[in-house]
Design a protein around this nucleic acid. Structure first.
Length: 476
RNA sequence: GGUCCCAUCGUCUAAUGGUUAGGACAUCACCCUUUCACGGUGGUAAUAUGGGUUCGAGUCCCGUUGGGAUCACCA
């Protein structure tokens, strides 16, 4: 049988990390076996619908390279792929389930159900409507009385099902409540739409958060009543923000889009989240999506929650940045340059200096702030024990550096470095006693991306000379 | 509260019942060096707890503790 998995998000606004990871596992389960990956939009809750949310879903999946074989935009043989367009299908099956004895019409108002719960806490809802004879209930429905369709659970004993990651799960039938399948607005609940769609779309593997474990027996009952075969269940643990809290946008935790905006590469994000709850069994950690397809196996999925560690993602992002070709890094950095610089700089060279030094693209901003405008630094910066420099040494060095660099005709790192090294030698100074003051003069910062001569190359001759003169003025 | 689930370094994790409990991030030290990075070498650091089963338990069983989930006309 062909493997078919689906990613079934509800369009509520953003793509959070846990969602994306679920999509990734669904994608990998299918694609590691030459199966189909289907995109289905679950918009049965009219109240929660957010305009534009489906576009975010499309854009995110495309951006990370997870292409779907069937979906609202590309079509397929099992459509439509948006649940609100399948409303009549659910109604048809819901009424059919009533005929089969797996559900019943319920005329209780919501408050009636709530009241019963308040009075008898911990007791599941005993629906009086269950006792209404079907013929009578049908008459009331036909007469236009508002109703919902509720699942009927008469089974007793223990339900057992197998889950790929959690193994055998046992839950007593009397723990299950008779939930609403078809709402009074005619829309199905998740509990029902999911089962119907997964069956109709021939989904072979259902991947979802482990919060659904306890309601899975209810779904199995529906499959059973219809005479359908349940899918393979793959319940995955949540991605956590810390030991007690799930990662969620409501807490202000980063979504995929937020991370990209912070300078993380989509490929790195995807690689990192693949490893949150799964491992290949080898010590390899860097994987492209194609490589993941080769090595993924759902049997290696983990059952305990994993805390999202931004520090490790940052490290991994650094690996991806360093692995970029110089051209690609430059291209990625360009937008940041354009926002920050108004003066001409040697940007190509800046990129080569920056690439091994940034872990996220956003680091570019903080590392290059001094290029646009020399900060008003303290002359005490010229003191450095290790370099054996102070204001006096700096002044002396800079005075000698000025004519030399003014005379340099090839403005390259190699030529500048050779010239300054030569100067140190003839003056009987240590390299640092010449280079350190120059670097401070050019940057006004204690730490910089690249050394003195690299900064000079980036700034260009005119600005370099100007900044050294400014330093000399400061030094009196 | 009932029920279900989970538990290895700070974090992500590895370990057919037999390893000095391995790797990665972070952290610390050293090396490299034109500051800082990159890179390299090394260090600190874990089987929650109490019983059992076994020649032998991180691994199997029971209890305890801790944590999470669920008990919606949300998904």
């Amino acid at each position: 049988m062909k493997i078919r998995t689906r990613f079934a998000p509800s369009p509520t606004g953003y793509m959070h990390i846990g969602n994306l990871r679920t999509a990734l596992y669904e994608y990998l389960i299918a694609k590691s076996q030459n199966g189909d990956f289907i995109l289905r939009i679950e918009d049965t809750d009219q109240k929660r619908y957010v305009e534009g949310a489906t576009d975010i879903i499309y854009a995110t999946l495309k951006r990370v390279g997870m292409n779907w074989d069937e979906g609202p935009d590309v079509g397929g043989n099992y459509g439509p792929y948006v649940q609100s367009e399948r409303k009549s299908i659910y109604a048809e099956y819901a009424h059919k389930l009533v005929e089969l004895g797996g559900a019943h019409y319920c005329f209780c108002s919501q408050s009636e159900a709530d009241e019963q719960k308040d009075e008898e806490q911990n007791i599941k809802f005993q629906d009086p409507c269950k006792l209404i004879p079907l013929e009578e209930a049908k008459k009331r429905v036909a007469a236009g009385e508002p109703y919902v369709i509720r699942q009927t659970i008469n089974k007793t004993g223990t339900s057992v099902f197998k889950d790929v990651v959690y193994g055998e799960i046992e839950i007593d039938y009397d723990e299950l409540d008779e939930g609403v399948l078809l709402k009074s607005d005619g829309f199905p609940t998740y509990n029902f739409a999911n089962v119907v769609d997964d069956h109709l779309m021939q989904i072979s593997h259902v991947v979802r958060g482990n919060e659904y474990i306890s309601s899975t027996p209810k779904y199995n009952l529906i499959y059973e009543d219809f005479g359908w075969t349940p899918p393979v269940y793959v319940h995955v643990p949540p991605v956590m923000k810390d030991a007690q809290h799930k990662l969620s946008k409501r807490n202000g935790d980063a979504s995929f889009q937020d991370l990209v905006a912070k300078g993380y590469l989509p490929e790195a994000i995807l690689n990192y989240i693949a490893l949150l709850g799964w491992n290949p069994g080898t010590e390899q950690e860097i994987f492209s999506l194609d490589e993941l397809k080769q090595v993924f196996s759902m049997e290696r999925l983990n059952k305990s929650p994993a805390i999202f560690d931004i520090a490790k993602l940052t490290w991994m992002n650094g690996c991806y940045i360093r692995a970029l070709s110089p051209q690609d890094f430059h291209k990625a950095a360009l937008p940041y340059y354009e926002k920050a610089f108004t003066h001409p700089l040697n940007l190509e060279f800046l990129s080569t200096v920056l690439q091994p030094r940034v872990e996220t693209l956003a680091d570019i901003v903080t590392q290059t702030d001094f290029l646009e405008k020399l900060p008003d630094y303290d002359v005490a910066l010229f003191q450095n024990k290790k370099m054996k420099t102070d204001e006096t040494v700096a002044k002396n060095s800079l005075e000698k550096v000025l004519p030399i660099i003014s005379a340099v005709d090839e403005w390259s790192n190699e030529a500048l470095f050779a010239a300054l090294k030569q100067l140190a030698e003839t003056e009987g100074l240590k390299n640092g006693q010449v280079l350190y003051p120059v670097r401070i003069a050019l940057s006004g910062k204690e730490t910089t991306p690249g050394g003195a001569t690299e900064l000079a190359v980036i700034l260009g001759k005119e600005e370099t000379v100007s900044r050294i003169k400014q330093a000399l003025a400061k030094l009196g």
